[in-house]
């Protein structure tokens, strides 16, 4: 080969390959930081989470108490679960604005069939799952078969699902005591070392473990990344791109139904008014968690960290006595900072 000897020595160090590709100056410390963040997308949100917890701990010593932290986790469970499905969709370079509406619709159907038609708990839960999967099929088919942008499709289905949910329930809330116990079981809790943990939180974590496993250990997961990274390359590599995208929307739909189960336990009701912020909050969690809106890059655990960051900011600011509006303001600033950081990190591409 005509390769110069240093060429082979350099390949193990991406930084220096960058220099090899045309940069004349050695990488600055900032470039090094960027390359590390580029490689481990969950790293920067993890740092933000730790720093914000220290900061809020200093502002109010009640913040770091076991009781408060377990409350934060419970508050985060619904958005955290929604963020799993949202992450899958964002990884394929899509976005889902209908997640909250799909979740609410599934809870209202579960409550409806249980109270109006006397379906037993497991069957009502199964109905919710079917509804969740159906919303995923609708979004997925519109995105893949009609080739419409996910943003537009889910903006439309967000309105459709919301309207159907209100029509089905007549806008009425079903209280927890009227429903079979199984539907609100996720709100029950047990205590470990002084920390109160709901079954909903456990369910959310199990879902993270299962989906993270599928993403990192199976060819399906690899194809999800490849499709989001460069769908044309994926197609030429023999991956059935539309099948992968469809499977992502359907899986996400099932996950939104699971999030709905956690929600019914959390608020002890099935209400058309619950979780109105859920659409944007799930996207916020994913973006703050380091998953790129351009697809193909990100780590699922980052989304849990992102959801926790939002929870920590909301809880910490309210404990420190700030007006709730400042929570919304802080979350908005966080999103813009997170997307800016993502843009900056993406420039590390050779």
């Amino acid at each position: 080969m005509t390769t110069e000897p240093q060429d082979t020595a350099l390949v193990d160090h991406p930084l220096e390959v960058l220099t090899d590709a045309g940069l004349t100056q050695p990488p600055s410390p900032l470039d090094r930081v960027r390359t590390v963040l580029h490689r481990y997308p969950a790293l920067s949100p993890a740092l933000v989470l730790i720093l914000s917890m220290i900061a809020f701990g200093l502002l109010n010593d009640r913040f770091l108490s076991t009781a408060n932290l377990s409350l934060v986790v419970q508050q985060v469970a619904v958005i955290g679960a929604l963020a799993i499905g949202q992450t899958l969709i964002v990884l394929t370079a899509g976005i889902d604005l209908s997640v909250g509406a799909a979740m609410i619709l599934s809870t209202l159907v579960a409550a409806g069939v249980a109270t109006d038609h006397g379906w037993p708990g497991p069957l009502a839960l199964f109905a919710a799952l079917v509804i969740g999967v159906a919303t995923g099929v609708i979004n997925g088919v519109l995105v893949t078969r009609l080739n419409l942008p996910p943003f537009i499709v889910t903006l439309g289905t967000f309105n459709v699902f919301t309207a159907v949910a209100l029509l089905y329930s007549d806008g009425a809330t079903t209280r927890g005591i009227e429903m079979p116990g199984l539907l609100t079981w996720t709100g029950k809790s047990f205590t470990v070392g002084g920390a109160q943990i709901t079954y909903g939180v456990v369910l959310m974590i199990l879902l993270y473990v299962a989906v993270a496993f599928a993403l990192s250990q199976t060819s399906w997961g690899r194809h999800v990344y490849a499709v989001g990274d460069d769908s044309e390359s994926a197609r030429l590599s023999g991956i059935h791109v539309t099948r992968v995208i469809l499977s992502v929307y359907v899986t996400a739909g099932a996950l939104f139904a699971a999030a709905g189960w956690i929600l019914m336990g959390r608020v002890n009701a099935a209400s058309p008014n619950a979780g109105v912020d859920a659409n944007l909050d799930s996207i916020t969690a994913v973006v703050i968690g380091g998953t790129s809106l351009f697809g193909g890059r990100g780590a699922l655990w980052g989304s849990l960290i992102g959801a926790l960051i939002v929870g920590v900011f909301r809880n910490g600011l309210s404990l420190a006595g700030y007006d709730p509006l400042y929570q919304t303001l802080a979350v908005g600033v966080l999103v813009i900072v997170a997307v800016s950081v993502d843009q900056w990190i993406r420039k590390a591409r050779a």
Partner: peptide
């Protein structure tokens, strides 16, 4: 091998070699 190469930039070399036939 197409002009556009049809490789997935974010995946590593081994993953690219086996992409679609893992």
């Amino acid at each position: 091998v197409y002009q556009t190469l049809a490789v997935s930039p974010a995946l590593d070399i081994a993953s690219n070699l086996f992409l679609g036939r893992e």
